[in-house]
Nucleic acid binder design. Structure first.
Lengths: 123, 123
DNA sequence: GATTGTGTTCTACAAATGTAGAAATAAATT
DNA sequence: AATTTATTTCTACATTTGTAGAACACAATC
């Protein structure tokens, strides 16, 4: 099951806020803001897909994500790796460092990160 | 303009083959193969979106991609970076190295790659 | 207690997507 | 020349997506 674009956008907002009432979500949209019924529809569809749930607070609901951004994101990336790189994360990584513009500092940081990981693995 | 899932799948085949007649594309699908008219429809829609073109060879057409896999892919990644990481490729990179399972060798390779890039930049 | 603000549910509808039949066409083969 | 094969174009139709009005509900406020 996947989120559509509009749903994913809304999910991003929810992830950022961790939990939110409809009003907060709509406020977070840039103008022109969608109709409340639009958001209500999206939220319901997302519930059906088991991406969000809510807690009833008095008469209104506080929504929260059922899926962690990390997990969702990983699936996205893994999908791409599968589709574009024959399932090789290394190939992806190589491509990634070549084709995105990381500044020198960013490259240094990334290198440090990899070093750390390598050290950890040696333990 | 984006490709739908079915379209993207077909595009992958076309990228792999570089160019192909409809028959070749359909052959490349796993069973159950889609109807030829299905593929014809997708190809036409992809033409409309300017993702493929063809050369008329006799009575039939040899299709080829108008958009490089690299370019298409970069846009995808950049979209994700924008959505998930506030436009920071570095943040993405960090996440990526943490959350995908790169083997030790792959990490080493990636490190080498980064070193090369850093050297180049210093020239 | 009447009014207002918020949220929910139901319904609707246009556009996009996934899929394919029918009919036409033309090249290749018998 | 008649038949078969490959392809295309047109049309169709169910599903999903993006978007929102109408109507109802209830809590807060005047």
């Amino acid at each position: 099951m996947t989120l559509s674009n509009a749903e994913e956008q809304l999910m991003q907002l929810l992830w950022k806020k961790e939990k939110a009432f409809m009003k907060d979500l709509i406020d977070a949209y840039p103008d022109p803001k969608p109709a409340t019924t639009t958001i209500a529809t999206l939220l319901k569809r997302m519930q059906d897909k088991n991406f969000v749930d809510y807690v009833q607070y008095g008469r209104s609901r506080e929504y929260f994500p059922l899926v962690k951004k990390k997990v969702y994101f990983s699936k996205q990336v893994n999908g791409m790796i599968k589709n574009f790189f024959n399932d090789s994360a290394a190939q992806f990584a190589s491509f990634f460092t070549k084709e995105t513009d990381l500044s020198q500092e960013e490259l240094e940081d990334l290198k440090k990160l990899i070093d750390q990981r390598l050290k950890e693995e040696r333990k």
